[in-house]
């Protein structure tokens, strides 16, 4: 069993992903056991306020701990880049909680696209729209934006070199230019509470991947049953939980010394988010530059 200590129970705004997501997932996972102190633990599950997160993760790495980090991994690209460097230097596994890419429909979609089922992809359209819940004081671009950006990266295996962002902090549209002339558009944010969508639940989460030889339309809210009662109408998820799969990845990464999802993924997502913020500020497309230079 891999020993895990929970560090912090805060996030952006009123979030407590530690107790709503990570704790129950660790408790039910067959490869992990919770311990009371960081000293006893091999893994730290870090969900401290975003402003403190980069420092907390860096300290854990220096202490030789593997890390599961709430998303975003850090508040800035510079911090995320430093965490990537530190993790490599200290030989520990750091998994950022980009768990949406592990949705059952998306995992199949990623495999299908990478296997050429639609030919060479040339465009992806995505909607990631949450209904209700507490608005993020940072704006939803910082809160949610990395999820679809991370999924796009997993789907295409291509980096983003140019970003144009428009809309509002609550509901933003990202227009991304990837390598090889591939384009994508992401609508991401929060709309008011909707009947039969749990507060903070995904009202729309879909991807359309257009390729030279076909189109793959993915409703990432599947697989699900549609359950109707006298009072309600809504989906019941039937696939494995995305956080459960995230912990599978963490356990496998610890065993192998390298995880399928790591700080580099967080760095690349953060580049896009920060470019989008700059684009929103200047009203123009922004080219993503060279990696930020850091050093310890």
């Amino acid at each position: 069993m891999i020993r895990v200590a929970l560090v912090g129970n805060a996030g952006i705004g009123s979030q407590d992903h530690q107790n709503s997501m990570y704790r129950p997932a660790f408790e039910r996972h067959p490869r992990f056991e919770l311990v009371d102190t960081a000293e006893e633990a091999e893994v730290l599950s870090i969900a401290v306020p975003l402003a403190e997160r980069g420092t907390a993760v860096a300290d854990a790495i220096r202490a030789g701990k593997h890390v599961l980090a709430d998303k975003p991994l850090a508040a800035t690209l510079a911090e995320a880049t430093e965490i990537e460097r530190l993790a490599a230097a200290h030989g520990v596994v750091v998994v950022p909680a980009h768990h949406q890419r592990f949705g059952a429909a998306l995992r199949s979609a990623i495999a299908a696209v990478r296997a050429g089922r639609v030919g060479l992809p040339w465009n992806v359209q995505c909607d990631f729209v949450v209904a209700g819940g507490d608005p993020a004081p940072t704006g939803e671009l910082v809160n949610f934006g990395l999820y679809p950006v991370d999924v796009l990266r997993a789907l295409l295996g291509l980096e983003v070199h140019r970003v144009h962002a428009t809309g509002t902090p609550d509901l933003v549209t990202l227009l991304l230019d990837h390598e090889h002339g591939v384009t994508s558009t992401v609508v991401c944010g929060r709309v008011p509470a909707l009947r039969d969508v749990p507060p903070g639940g995904l009202a729309v989460h879909r991807y359309r991947i257009s390729g030279s030889h076909g189109v793959l339309a993915v409703d990432a809210r599947k697989p699900a049953l549609q359950v109707r009662t006298t009072d309600t109408f809504g989906p019941v998820w039937t696939g494995p939980g995305t956080v459960d799969v995230l912990l599978d990845v963490l356990a496998a990464g610890i065993a192998a010394g390298r995880a399928a999802l790591g700080p580099h993924d967080a760095v690349q997502a953060q580049r896009v988010i920060e470019a989008a913020q700059r684009s929103m500020a200047v009203g123009q497309p922004v080219a993503i530059g060279q990696p930020v230079e850091t050093g310890e």
Binding site: D127, V129, L171, V187, P192, L194, V204, V215
Partner: peptide
């Protein structure tokens, strides 16, 4: 492609619903 499968999709989000 395929051109035989015409598709139209729409989503309108408002301040009180979609």
């Amino acid at each position: 492609r395929p051109g035989s499968l015409a598709q139209r999709e729409l989503l309108v989000a408002g301040t009180a619903g979609i």
